[in-house]
């Protein structure tokens, strides 16, 4: 069986250079590749283009990249939790492409699935439609949107095996499975790495064909943005 194990985040991301386009999994802070983020932060790579649904918070997740001015462009759907992001966006320091969340998900899925472009109704009649082809199907208007690709996809999963098969947990799944398919090189960090053959084939969410490097991460903070409890 093919073994894709690397030792740690440092080994996994060592060939990521300035100017790379990265996809990073997560919805808010749930399911973000914490170990890879920490290592890239140490190396202070520059001029990154990052595709990620959100931008973390000011002092955690991708927010830390923004603080260190490592990011040239963000492609996201919602950046509201991060004041620094909003500030850089409004001031023009940061190039931001705001994409409807469903369009973002489908552009990434299409990228991994060999679909160069597709039509979606999201954004018709809004500024998202500017400069884009509109076509009618059965009397309803749709926008032409193009697939997204990345040099590297950094994904976080719950369990993975040495062949790169991945299982996700809870709502930490979100964009990770899609991004895993769309990165030229997909790096998966998992909470538990098991030998290939240990996982039930029925339970696998992302087949290992999409994953090039996998490692068992550690010290996951799993910060919570809105700790909400019932009395």
């Amino acid at each position: 069986m093919i073994n894709k194990t690397v030792k740690n985040a440092e080994e996994a991301v060592k060939d990521i250079q300035d100017g790379a386009t990265l996809m990073m999994g997560g919805f808010g802070l749930s399911g973000i590749p914490e170990n890879c983020i920490a290592d890239l932060l140490k190396r202070k790579i520059q001029n990154l283009t990052i595709v990620s649904n959100n931008a973390g918070v000011d002092d955690f997740g991708i927010g830390l990249f923004l603080k260190e001015r490592m990011v040239k462009k963000m492609i996201s759907s919602y950046v509201g939790e991060n004041d620094e992001f909003e500030r850089q966006l409004l001031s023009g320091e940061l190039d931001v492409e705001l994409v409807p969340q469903g369009t973002l998900a489908e552009r990434i899925r299409a990228g991994g699935a060999g679909i160069p472009a597709f039509f979606t109704p999201a954004g018709v009649g809004t500024e998202v439609a500017e400069g884009k082809e509109i076509r009618e199907f059965d009397g309803k208007s749709y926008l032409l949107e193009h697939a997204l690709h990345a040099d590297f996809a950094l994904v976080k999963a719950w369990k993975g095996d040495t062949a790169g098969n991945l299982i996700f947990k809870g709502t930490a799944r979100n964009f990770n499975p899609l991004m895993a398919t769309a990165g030229k090189i997909t790096i998966a960090e998992v909470e538990e790495l098991v030998p290939a053959g240990s996982l039930d084939p029925n339970a696998i969410h992302t087949p290992g064909i999409y994953v090039q490097r996998i490692f068992q991460g550690d010290s996951y903070e799993k910060r919570i943005e809105q700790r909400t409890v019932s009395v």
């Binding site: 996201s76 919602y78 409004l90 369009t103 979606t120 954004g123």
Partner: peptide, 15 residues
């Protein structure tokens, strides 16, 4: 003033 992003709203209202 406020540009937080549209999140899933555009998909929801279009569909």
């Amino acid at each position: 003033k406020m540009v937080k992003g549209m999140g899933g709203a555009m998909d929801l209202v279009a569909s």
